[in-house]
Amino acid sequence: MIQFQYVRTSTPKAAVDAVSKAQNARFIAGGTNLVDLMKRDIMKPEKLVDINNIPLKGIEQQGNKIVIGALALNSQVADNKLVQEKLPLLSQSLNAGASAQIRNMATVGGNMMQRTRCNYFYDTAMPCNKREPGSGCGALEGFNRMHAIFGTSEKCIAVHPSDMCIALVALDATVVTTGPKGERRIPFSEFHRLPGDNPEKDNNLMENELITAVEIPDNAFTRNVHYLKIRDRASYAFAVVSVAAALHIENNTIKDARLAMGGVSHKPWRLTGAEKALIGKPASEETFRNAANIAMEGAKTFKYNAFKLKLGPNTIVQALKNAAEPV
Protein backbone atom coordinates (compact mmCIF):
# COMPACT_ATOMS: atom_id res chain seq x y z
CA MET A 1 0.00 0.00 0.00
CA ILE A 2 1.32 3.45 -0.81
CA GLN A 3 1.71 5.98 1.92
CA PHE A 4 -1.05 8.57 1.97
CA GLN A 5 -2.22 11.58 3.87
CA TYR A 6 -5.03 11.11 6.35
CA VAL A 7 -7.42 13.73 7.74
CA ARG A 8 -10.57 13.56 9.82
CA THR A 9 -13.54 15.78 9.20
CA SER A 10 -16.76 16.29 11.10
CA THR A 11 -19.06 18.11 8.68
CA PRO A 12 -20.06 17.29 5.10
CA LYS A 13 -18.72 20.63 3.96
CA ALA A 14 -15.33 20.12 5.58
CA ALA A 15 -15.17 16.68 4.01
CA VAL A 16 -15.96 17.96 0.55
CA ASP A 17 -13.44 20.77 0.99
CA ALA A 18 -10.75 18.39 2.18
CA VAL A 19 -11.25 16.00 -0.70
CA SER A 20 -11.46 18.84 -3.23
CA LYS A 21 -8.10 20.24 -2.14
CA ALA A 22 -6.10 17.25 -3.28
CA GLN A 23 -5.87 15.27 -6.44
CA ASN A 24 -6.69 11.62 -6.10
CA ALA A 25 -8.31 11.90 -2.68
CA ARG A 26 -11.05 9.62 -1.41
CA PHE A 27 -13.56 9.63 1.39
CA ILE A 28 -13.26 6.71 3.77
CA ALA A 29 -16.05 5.46 6.04
CA GLY A 30 -16.15 1.75 6.88
CA GLY A 31 -13.22 1.08 4.60
CA THR A 32 -14.28 -2.52 4.02
CA ASN A 33 -13.85 -2.27 0.28
CA LEU A 34 -11.43 0.64 -0.08
CA VAL A 35 -8.81 -0.72 2.34
CA ASP A 36 -8.99 -4.09 0.59
CA LEU A 37 -8.47 -2.45 -2.80
CA MET A 38 -5.63 -0.31 -1.48
CA LYS A 39 -3.85 -3.37 -0.07
CA ARG A 40 -3.88 -4.91 -3.50
CA ASP A 41 -2.73 -1.70 -5.23
CA ILE A 42 -5.97 -1.59 -7.19
CA MET A 43 -6.76 1.85 -5.80
CA LYS A 44 -4.01 4.21 -4.71
CA PRO A 45 -5.52 7.35 -3.21
CA GLU A 46 -2.91 9.80 -1.97
CA LYS A 47 -5.21 11.28 0.61
CA LEU A 48 -7.98 9.76 2.70
CA VAL A 49 -10.66 11.94 4.23
CA ASP A 50 -12.18 10.10 7.17
CA ILE A 51 -15.89 10.98 7.34
CA ASN A 52 -16.86 8.78 10.28
CA ASN A 53 -17.22 11.73 12.65
CA ILE A 54 -19.86 13.39 10.49
CA PRO A 55 -23.29 12.94 12.13
CA LEU A 56 -24.99 11.05 9.30
CA LYS A 57 -26.07 7.90 11.08
CA GLY A 58 -29.77 8.61 11.63
CA ILE A 59 -32.61 6.39 10.48
CA GLU A 60 -35.94 8.20 10.68
CA GLN A 61 -39.35 8.81 9.23
CA GLN A 62 -39.53 12.23 7.62
CA GLY A 63 -42.99 12.90 6.23
CA ASN A 64 -43.85 10.17 3.75
CA LYS A 65 -40.37 8.78 3.45
CA ILE A 66 -37.75 7.06 5.52
CA VAL A 67 -34.40 8.79 5.51
CA ILE A 68 -31.28 6.80 6.25
CA GLY A 69 -28.02 8.63 6.86
CA ALA A 70 -25.16 7.64 4.60
CA LEU A 71 -23.03 6.63 7.58
CA ALA A 72 -25.63 4.35 9.17
CA LEU A 73 -23.99 0.95 9.46
CA ASN A 74 -25.39 -1.93 7.45
CA SER A 75 -26.09 -3.82 10.69
CA GLN A 76 -27.83 -0.83 12.26
CA VAL A 77 -30.14 -0.53 9.28
CA ALA A 78 -30.82 -4.27 9.10
CA ASP A 79 -31.71 -4.44 12.81
CA ASN A 80 -33.59 -1.14 12.93
CA LYS A 81 -37.23 -1.53 14.05
CA LEU A 82 -38.57 1.05 11.61
CA VAL A 83 -36.76 -0.58 8.72
CA GLN A 84 -37.85 -4.06 9.73
CA GLU A 85 -41.45 -2.93 9.97
CA LYS A 86 -41.71 -0.70 6.91
CA LEU A 87 -38.85 -1.81 4.67
CA PRO A 88 -38.41 -5.51 5.43
CA LEU A 89 -36.98 -6.11 1.94
CA LEU A 90 -34.11 -3.75 2.73
CA SER A 91 -33.43 -5.50 6.02
CA GLN A 92 -33.41 -8.91 4.33
CA SER A 93 -31.07 -7.77 1.59
CA LEU A 94 -28.62 -6.31 4.08
CA ASN A 95 -28.48 -9.49 6.11
CA ALA A 96 -27.80 -11.46 2.92
CA GLY A 97 -24.65 -9.45 2.32
CA ALA A 98 -21.13 -10.03 3.61
CA SER A 99 -20.71 -11.09 7.24
CA ALA A 100 -21.86 -9.76 10.60
CA GLN A 101 -18.46 -8.14 11.17
CA ILE A 102 -18.42 -6.40 7.80
CA ARG A 103 -22.01 -5.22 8.29
CA ASN A 104 -20.83 -3.68 11.57
CA MET A 105 -18.28 -1.61 9.65
CA ALA A 106 -19.80 -0.96 6.24
CA THR A 107 -22.02 2.08 5.83
CA VAL A 108 -25.00 2.63 3.55
CA GLY A 109 -23.05 5.11 1.44
CA GLY A 110 -20.02 2.85 1.29
CA ASN A 111 -22.15 -0.11 0.28
CA MET A 112 -23.33 1.88 -2.73
CA MET A 113 -19.73 2.72 -3.58
CA GLN A 114 -18.60 -0.91 -3.57
CA ARG A 115 -16.63 -1.82 -6.62
CA THR A 116 -17.06 -4.97 -8.65
CA ARG A 117 -15.60 -8.27 -7.46
CA CYS A 118 -14.62 -9.27 -11.01
CA ASN A 119 -11.54 -11.54 -10.82
CA TYR A 120 -9.77 -9.51 -13.50
CA PHE A 121 -10.43 -6.20 -11.77
CA TYR A 122 -8.92 -7.69 -8.64
CA ASP A 123 -5.64 -8.85 -10.17
CA THR A 124 -3.25 -6.13 -11.31
CA ALA A 125 -1.47 -8.67 -13.51
CA MET A 126 -4.62 -9.08 -15.61
CA PRO A 127 -6.18 -6.76 -18.16
CA CYS A 128 -9.16 -4.76 -16.92
CA ASN A 129 -10.66 -1.65 -18.46
CA LYS A 130 -12.26 -0.67 -15.19
CA ARG A 131 -8.98 -0.67 -13.29
CA GLU A 132 -6.76 0.41 -16.15
CA PRO A 133 -8.72 1.93 -19.02
CA GLY A 134 -7.56 0.65 -22.38
CA SER A 135 -5.95 -2.54 -21.05
CA GLY A 136 -8.82 -4.72 -22.27
CA CYS A 137 -11.51 -6.79 -20.58
CA GLY A 138 -10.09 -10.00 -19.19
CA ALA A 139 -13.50 -11.44 -18.44
CA LEU A 140 -15.01 -11.07 -21.89
CA GLU A 141 -13.18 -14.14 -23.20
CA GLY A 142 -12.13 -15.42 -19.81
CA PHE A 143 -13.63 -17.01 -16.72
CA ASN A 144 -16.94 -15.17 -16.65
CA ARG A 145 -19.21 -17.43 -14.63
CA MET A 146 -20.13 -14.66 -12.18
CA HIS A 147 -20.50 -11.99 -14.84
CA ALA A 148 -23.24 -9.83 -16.30
CA ILE A 149 -25.93 -10.78 -18.77
CA PHE A 150 -27.63 -7.38 -19.03
CA GLY A 151 -26.25 -4.05 -20.16
CA THR A 152 -22.75 -5.31 -20.91
CA SER A 153 -20.35 -3.60 -23.28
CA GLU A 154 -17.31 -4.73 -25.22
CA LYS A 155 -15.30 -2.94 -22.57
CA CYS A 156 -16.70 -4.54 -19.44
CA ILE A 157 -19.02 -7.32 -18.32
CA ALA A 158 -18.52 -6.94 -14.57
CA VAL A 159 -21.41 -6.99 -12.09
CA HIS A 160 -22.23 -4.71 -9.21
CA PRO A 161 -21.76 -6.75 -6.02
CA SER A 162 -24.15 -5.17 -3.51
CA ASP A 163 -27.25 -6.81 -2.10
CA MET A 164 -28.58 -3.70 -0.37
CA CYS A 165 -28.63 -1.78 -3.63
CA ILE A 166 -30.87 -4.39 -5.26
CA ALA A 167 -33.51 -3.75 -2.61
CA LEU A 168 -33.02 0.03 -2.81
CA VAL A 169 -33.46 0.16 -6.56
CA ALA A 170 -36.61 -1.93 -6.23
CA LEU A 171 -37.96 0.40 -3.55
CA ASP A 172 -37.54 3.57 -5.65
CA ALA A 173 -34.99 5.08 -3.32
CA THR A 174 -33.35 8.45 -3.90
CA VAL A 175 -29.71 9.22 -3.18
CA VAL A 176 -28.98 12.56 -1.52
CA THR A 177 -25.53 14.03 -2.09
CA THR A 178 -23.61 17.16 -1.35
CA GLY A 179 -20.70 18.43 -3.37
CA PRO A 180 -18.80 21.50 -4.37
CA LYS A 181 -21.92 22.60 -6.26
CA GLY A 182 -24.32 21.96 -3.39
CA GLU A 183 -26.95 19.29 -2.70
CA ARG A 184 -28.36 16.89 -5.32
CA ARG A 185 -31.01 14.19 -5.40
CA ILE A 186 -30.40 11.26 -7.70
CA PRO A 187 -33.00 8.54 -8.33
CA PHE A 188 -31.41 5.27 -7.21
CA SER A 189 -31.87 3.69 -10.63
CA GLU A 190 -29.73 6.47 -12.08
CA PHE A 191 -27.04 6.37 -9.44
CA HIS A 192 -25.09 3.39 -10.80
CA ARG A 193 -24.33 3.23 -14.47
CA LEU A 194 -23.74 0.74 -17.23
CA PRO A 195 -20.12 0.28 -18.33
CA GLY A 196 -20.44 1.53 -21.90
CA ASP A 197 -17.13 2.97 -23.04
CA ASN A 198 -16.13 4.12 -19.56
CA PRO A 199 -16.24 1.14 -17.21
CA GLU A 200 -13.82 2.94 -14.90
CA LYS A 201 -16.83 4.94 -13.77
CA ASP A 202 -19.09 2.87 -11.53
CA ASN A 203 -21.68 5.56 -10.91
CA ASN A 204 -22.82 9.04 -11.77
CA LEU A 205 -21.43 10.84 -8.73
CA MET A 206 -19.60 13.98 -9.65
CA GLU A 207 -16.06 14.64 -8.57
CA ASN A 208 -15.73 15.25 -4.82
CA GLU A 209 -19.42 14.63 -4.24
CA LEU A 210 -20.39 13.00 -0.94
CA ILE A 211 -23.41 10.77 -0.37
CA THR A 212 -25.23 12.04 2.72
CA ALA A 213 -28.45 10.02 2.78
CA VAL A 214 -30.81 7.62 1.09
CA GLU A 215 -34.53 8.32 1.05
CA ILE A 216 -37.10 5.60 0.59
CA PRO A 217 -40.70 6.62 -0.04
CA ASP A 218 -43.40 4.94 2.03
CA ASN A 219 -44.82 1.91 0.27
CA ALA A 220 -47.20 -0.97 0.68
CA PHE A 221 -44.47 -3.60 0.60
CA THR A 222 -44.38 -4.40 4.27
CA ARG A 223 -45.36 -8.04 4.20
CA ASN A 224 -45.07 -9.79 0.84
CA VAL A 225 -41.40 -9.32 0.21
CA HIS A 226 -38.44 -11.61 -0.29
CA TYR A 227 -34.77 -11.23 -1.05
CA LEU A 228 -33.45 -14.46 -2.50
CA LYS A 229 -29.75 -14.82 -3.04
CA ILE A 230 -28.26 -17.80 -4.85
CA ARG A 231 -24.60 -18.30 -4.07
CA ASP A 232 -22.02 -21.03 -4.18
CA ARG A 233 -22.20 -21.65 -0.47
CA ALA A 234 -24.89 -21.06 2.11
CA SER A 235 -23.61 -17.73 3.38
CA TYR A 236 -20.80 -15.16 3.09
CA ALA A 237 -20.49 -15.26 -0.69
CA PHE A 238 -21.35 -12.89 -3.49
CA ALA A 239 -24.49 -13.55 -5.47
CA VAL A 240 -24.45 -15.78 -8.50
CA VAL A 241 -27.93 -14.33 -9.00
CA SER A 242 -30.16 -12.53 -6.52
CA VAL A 243 -33.71 -11.24 -6.67
CA ALA A 244 -35.48 -8.60 -4.62
CA ALA A 245 -39.22 -9.15 -4.87
CA ALA A 246 -41.96 -7.02 -3.32
CA LEU A 247 -45.65 -7.57 -3.84
CA HIS A 248 -48.74 -5.78 -2.69
CA ILE A 249 -51.44 -8.42 -2.78
CA GLU A 250 -55.12 -7.93 -2.10
CA ASN A 251 -57.60 -10.77 -2.48
CA ASN A 252 -54.91 -12.81 -4.23
CA THR A 253 -54.55 -10.10 -6.86
CA ILE A 254 -51.25 -8.30 -7.27
CA LYS A 255 -52.02 -4.62 -6.86
CA ASP A 256 -48.44 -3.47 -7.12
CA ALA A 257 -45.02 -5.05 -7.55
CA ARG A 258 -41.33 -4.28 -7.43
CA LEU A 259 -38.67 -6.55 -8.82
CA ALA A 260 -34.91 -6.19 -9.18
CA MET A 261 -31.96 -8.48 -9.78
CA GLY A 262 -28.40 -8.65 -8.62
CA GLY A 263 -25.46 -10.54 -10.08
CA VAL A 264 -26.61 -9.82 -13.63
CA SER A 265 -25.47 -6.32 -14.46
CA HIS A 266 -23.01 -3.50 -13.87
CA LYS A 267 -25.82 -1.78 -11.95
CA PRO A 268 -28.65 -2.99 -9.74
CA TRP A 269 -31.05 -4.29 -12.36
CA ARG A 270 -34.63 -3.12 -12.02
CA LEU A 271 -37.18 -5.27 -13.87
CA THR A 272 -39.94 -2.82 -14.72
CA GLY A 273 -41.31 -4.86 -17.62
CA ALA A 274 -41.73 -7.87 -15.38
CA GLU A 275 -43.35 -5.71 -12.70
CA LYS A 276 -45.97 -4.56 -15.21
CA ALA A 277 -46.66 -8.17 -16.11
CA LEU A 278 -47.38 -8.93 -12.45
CA ILE A 279 -49.75 -6.07 -11.67
CA GLY A 280 -53.39 -6.96 -11.85
CA LYS A 281 -52.70 -10.67 -12.10
CA PRO A 282 -53.40 -13.39 -9.55
CA ALA A 283 -50.45 -14.29 -7.33
CA SER A 284 -49.83 -17.64 -9.01
CA GLU A 285 -46.82 -19.57 -10.26
CA GLU A 286 -48.05 -18.99 -13.81
CA THR A 287 -48.04 -15.23 -13.32
CA PHE A 288 -44.60 -15.40 -11.77
CA ARG A 289 -43.20 -17.53 -14.57
CA ASN A 290 -44.58 -15.18 -17.17
CA ALA A 291 -42.98 -12.20 -15.44
CA ALA A 292 -39.70 -14.08 -15.10
CA ASN A 293 -39.64 -14.80 -18.81
CA ILE A 294 -40.24 -11.15 -19.59
CA ALA A 295 -37.46 -10.24 -17.16
CA MET A 296 -34.93 -12.20 -19.16
CA GLU A 297 -35.63 -10.52 -22.47
CA GLY A 298 -32.49 -8.99 -23.90
CA ALA A 299 -30.12 -11.08 -21.83
CA LYS A 300 -26.77 -11.83 -23.43
CA THR A 301 -24.61 -14.58 -21.99
CA PHE A 302 -20.95 -15.51 -22.20
CA LYS A 303 -19.00 -18.74 -22.18
CA TYR A 304 -19.39 -19.63 -18.52
CA ASN A 305 -22.57 -17.83 -17.47
CA ALA A 306 -25.20 -19.17 -19.85
CA PHE A 307 -26.80 -20.95 -16.91
CA LYS A 308 -28.04 -17.58 -15.66
CA LEU A 309 -30.64 -17.70 -18.44
CA LYS A 310 -32.27 -20.51 -16.48
CA LEU A 311 -31.17 -19.77 -12.94
CA GLY A 312 -32.26 -16.12 -13.29
CA PRO A 313 -35.93 -16.72 -14.07
CA ASN A 314 -36.13 -19.67 -11.68
CA THR A 315 -34.82 -17.44 -8.91
CA ILE A 316 -37.35 -14.75 -9.83
CA VAL A 317 -40.18 -17.30 -9.65
CA GLN A 318 -39.00 -18.61 -6.30
CA ALA A 319 -38.48 -15.14 -4.84
CA LEU A 320 -42.00 -14.18 -5.90
CA LYS A 321 -43.41 -17.39 -4.45
CA ASN A 322 -41.65 -16.71 -1.17
CA ALA A 323 -42.87 -13.11 -1.22
CA ALA A 324 -46.43 -14.19 -1.87
CA GLU A 325 -46.31 -16.68 0.98
CA PRO A 326 -43.83 -15.45 3.54
CA VAL A 327 -42.64 -18.05 6.00
Partner: peptide, 14 residues
Protein backbone atom coordinates in the same frame (compact mmCIF):
# COMPACT_ATOMS: atom_id res chain seq x y z
CA UNK B 1 -8.48 -16.39 -11.30
CA UNK B 2 -9.99 -17.80 -8.09
CA UNK B 3 -7.36 -17.21 -5.46
CA UNK B 4 -8.78 -15.82 -2.29
CA UNK B 5 -11.61 -16.78 0.06
CA UNK B 6 -14.10 -14.64 -1.88
CA UNK B 7 -13.51 -16.62 -5.05
CA UNK B 8 -12.29 -19.97 -3.76
CA UNK B 9 -15.06 -21.02 -1.45
CA UNK B 10 -14.52 -23.20 1.59
CA UNK B 11 -17.43 -24.18 3.84
CA UNK B 12 -18.68 -21.64 6.35
CA UNK B 13 -20.77 -22.26 9.46
CA UNK B 14 -24.01 -22.17 7.47
Amino acid sequence: VTKDFAEYHVPVHA
